[in-house]
Simulated scan of single mutants.
Amino acid sequence: MFPGPLGTSLAGRALARGDWSLEALNIREHGLGRHRTVDDTPAGGGAGMVMRADVLGSAIDAAAPAGDPRPRLLMSPRGTPLTQKRVRALAQGPGALILCGRFEGVDERVIEGRGLEEVSIGDYILSGGEMAALVLLDAVVRLLPGVMGNAQSGETESFEDGLLEHPHYTRPTEWEGRAIPPVLQSGDHGVVARWRRTEAERLTQQRRPDLWQNCGISLKD
């Protein structure tokens, strides 16, 4: 599953250059017995299987020995929602160890014992944490120096200042009776910047009132 789509396009070229690196480790290498077992039935009964604390603890210790400064992340639907602020902090940090769970869940004791930070990419359930990890990695990698062709692109996107991004337009000037807003053809960069800010605020109010409330601003400011 890794690097998957991160092995293509800008991220893939940056990976080939060594601008960032990725090492995928198979938890089953630390499994128990002839079948390399990594899970067992839930204590107290119930459906599904739970990944064992001893197996995961061994895998984590092998990947990140004591003293490793990287944060230890567990992709989990019950985790703290991933935000652009957290993504930027990770991009500026020493890297990360990302644990991808499977089955019903992960033994709570390894979360506590290895200081795992649970991170969620949304209020829905996936078959495992791998796809969520790819989302997190993509969000972080694109902010690393040299990955994007224009660093400014990452500074003017949705969520960077708490707002959704303004609308975009390009040629042709008119398409199916819809024209590019005249302000974007004015050549006045100050007017364009104000229009973009106003549109970003309008879209945020309409589509994400939760974000707008957190901004603590109004269109009059």
Rank of each mutant, 00 (worst) to 15 (best):
F2I: 14
P3N: 02
P3T: 03
G4D: 06
G7S: 12
A11T: 15
G12A: 04
S21R: 13
L22D: 08
E29M: 10
G33H: 06
H35T: 08
T41M: 11
A43Y: 11
G44M: 04
G46H: 07
G46E: 08
G48T: 11
V50G: 09
M51Q: 13
G57C: 02
A64N: 09
P69N: 05
P69K: 12
P69S: 05
R72C: 11
M75L: 14
P77E: 03
T80F: 09
V87W: 02
R88Y: 03
Q92G: 15
Q92A: 15
P94K: 02
I98Y: 06
R102C: 04
G105W: 07
R109I: 00
G113Q: 06
G113N: 09
R114T: 05
I121E: 02
S127M: 00
G128A: 10
E130A: 13
L134M: 14
L136Y: 02
L136H: 10
V141C: 10
L143E: 09
V147C: 12
V147S: 08
V147T: 14
Q152H: 14
T156Q: 11
T156I: 15
D161P: 02
G162S: 09
G162T: 09
L163I: 12
E165F: 09
P167G: 01
T170I: 10
R171A: 10
P172L: 09
P172T: 06
G177Q: 08
R178D: 14
P182R: 07
S186M: 02
D188R: 15
D188M: 10
G190K: 08
G190S: 13
V191D: 15
R196G: 08
T198E: 09
E201G: 10
R208Y: 03
P209E: 04
P209A: 00
P209W: 02
D221T: 08
